[in-house]
Amino acid sequence: MRPETEGQLAEIIAGAAGPLRVQGGGTRGVDAPGEVLETGGLTGISLYDPGSLTLVVKAGTPLAQIEAALEAEGQRLAFEPMDARGLLGTAGEPTIGGVFAANVSGPRRVQAGAARDFLLGVRFVDGLGQVVKNGGRVMKNVTGYDLVKLMAGSYGTLGVLTEVSLKVLPKPEAAACVLIDGLSDAEAVGAMAKALGSPYDVTGAAHTPSGIDGHPVTMIRIEGFEGSVAYRAGRLREMFASHDVTVDSDPERVAAGWRWVRDVHPMTGTQGDVWRLSVKPSDAPGLVDVLRRRGAVRSVLYDWGGGLVWVETEPGDDIRPSGFKGHATLIRASSGTRQRIARFQPEPAPVAALAQGIRQKFDPRAILNQGIMG
């Protein structure tokens, strides 16, 4: 089913006799029982005002179309949504509704914020087929449920997005990447913390124990006006002068390097399970070391200064009993492993009860993306 209007979508949901599997471009690897309900027919930019940095767009609009429109005006989506197709081996076109339904953010989240932080308003159809609108075209305080933030990251379990309004930002004039070679995981996390705590407005901090040349490399990104970028890159280079440091200011290489991080390229085309760990940055190297001693780890990529860790493991290995403090999300695995291991970190009982109560409120028949969130 592929409705082309909000009204058609509402009729389909209201008349549904069983569960519905809601998807945009089908690129995120999210699976649920039921008949497929695609939002790709709900397309088009409803309003774009570059002067007020505001965009209103139908939820099924391809992300590439939106990025092209912003590029023409020298603007961008600052939260840098990842493209999961390579990692997950999926096809199709990512949509803006899917981006917000999964709260998809990239390396710049450490500085700019998550996708949900740029969402101003939503329109969606709930599990009873009712059209709901919340928010608007400017940031404002709310009382009661903040449905704008609630919908972000709900994976279509509360309602099907039909339109979103969001804030965009100007594209910077220049970018540079400070590269530090040869650091251990613990040294890299310390260096990234130092860079992020500096006054030099770092917009990305990542580390791979095995870069393109097979050696460890730590990446620190800065963006802005050309003169400012050059100055800050120089100061960061001085800050880490005791290490093997280079600065890359070539815009194409810098952009390609951060796409490599954003899309978790080291784990593209491989056969292991992929986990996304959200942890206290200082805990990340110790956690990875524990997993390595278990023999579970195939490859690792640190992002957000170590607060986000991508780990590829042997197929079927549940890493959650390792006793770490944080959240582990199973991003890629076989269908058999998914049946045995929950996608999301199990919630404490009081939080799980609250979440179930909210889902019951918006989808009392439990027909939207059943079972995805627990």
Rank of each mutant, 00 (worst) to 15 (best):
G272D: 10
A256E: 12
D248C: 08
S299L: 07
D273R: 00
I319Q: 12
V274M: 08
V300L: 10
V279W: 08
A353R: 01
P285T: 02
H243Q: 14
S278P: 00
L287E: 04
A353F: 04
G357S: 07
G326N: 09
V254E: 14
W310V: 03
S249E: 15
V279N: 03
L354H: 00
Y302K: 02
L236T: 08
L236V: 11
E238M: 13
G269I: 00
D244F: 04
T337F: 05
R292P: 00
R340K: 12
A355H: 04
E347D: 08
S334M: 07
G234N: 12
V351D: 09
R235L: 15
W260D: 13
G323F: 05
M267L: 09
G295S: 06
G286Q: 08
A328W: 06
R320K: 11
A296Y: 10
G295E: 03
L301H: 02
T329Q: 10
S335Q: 06
G234V: 09
W258Q: 10
T268M: 07
P281I: 02
R359Y: 07
V245P: 07
R359F: 05
M239D: 15
V297E: 10
A256V: 02
D244R: 09
R262Q: 14
G305W: 11
Y231T: 13
G316D: 13
A353N: 02
P285N: 04
D273C: 05
R320P: 14
V300H: 03
M239F: 13
V290D: 14
A342H: 05
R262G: 14
V274I: 11
